[in-house]
Amino acid sequence: MSTYRIVHYINQFFGQIGGEEQAHIPAEKRPGPVGPGLAFKQHFGGEAEIVATIICGDSWFNENLDLAKKTVLEMVREEAPDLFIAGPAFNAGRYGVACGTISDAVKTELGIPSLTGMYEENPGADMFRTKVLTVATSNSAAGMRKAVPAMAKLALKLLKGERVGASAEDGYLPDGVRRNFFEKKRGSARAIDMLLKKLSDKPFETEYPMPSFDRVPPMPAIKDITRATIAIVTSGGIVPKGNPDHIESSSASKYGSYNIEGVNDLTSESYETAHGGYDPVYANKDADRVIPVDVLRQYEKEGKIGKLHNWFYTTVGNGTAVASAKKYADEIAEKLISHEVDAVILTST
């Protein structure tokens, strides 16, 4: 029986090169297992082996992201492994982000199954847990003894194409996919256990977390609006006529940025709505009814506001569908900041 081939990614510390002072070292590849890789070996029981270990400095990876990804991907490709493992990174932030980034890249770009491990509060966990299976570990390297068998077990499942169990069963961080499994107790008994914990203010874990509704503290007011650059963002789906970016009418997977330099009024000849979530007749007739370009242009001329930002950003979103918007909202925010926008008028239908 041939053994499965695995490539393992670790940082300079676990590669026994050095601590923070060696974090700048570029990626290098060594044959066979190194450091934690040796611990993995005994849990593979001869069914799989680490054929190569890639060691990379955390600073170098994060500061040279594109180059680092390219370099490491190439090193992985040369080995043509059956599986890629990164970490575990425990609570080391940059190491966690590197593990998440590279295992996601190996999975999507090389089509090789990947696995990583980290502490749930590692920033890398939040960024990548829904993309790459991330085994839950403790917050320090002291948890290696527990992390390795859990990762090895999951690794063998992935290698053999076996069904991955629910996160609670196989010990990985919830990845947004609901999977069935049999609990030890029936539901009614679990409900009573949970209720008793809730009643005595002890921590309890809901089996289905509700979509979260967090809050952001309000930003300070604009001191002098007559000098402020104001941008328009809308979830009402206003786009140039013909919808050049093909923004979908519902649960849009993208957003549009459109230049309105020199546009004083939105007309039915040039603008419309791509939104499928409301009767489009009124917006198609006059898109100013959704984004008040006409008034803001006038105010810009009158000096009532400093400037109307020359781009507006549009998405399609129902008022209640919040979560999906997060990704492009972050991108829009980034653009607004780089354009030194001071305030935003966001309109929703």
């Binding site: 996160s167 609670a168 499994f181 049999f182 539901g187 409900a191």
Partner: peptide
């Protein structure tokens, strides 16, 4: 998937 909790089946 009984909702009185008759079974051991669950999901995560």
């Amino acid at each position: 998937t009984n909702e009185m909790g008759f079974n051991r089946l669950s999901a995560r």
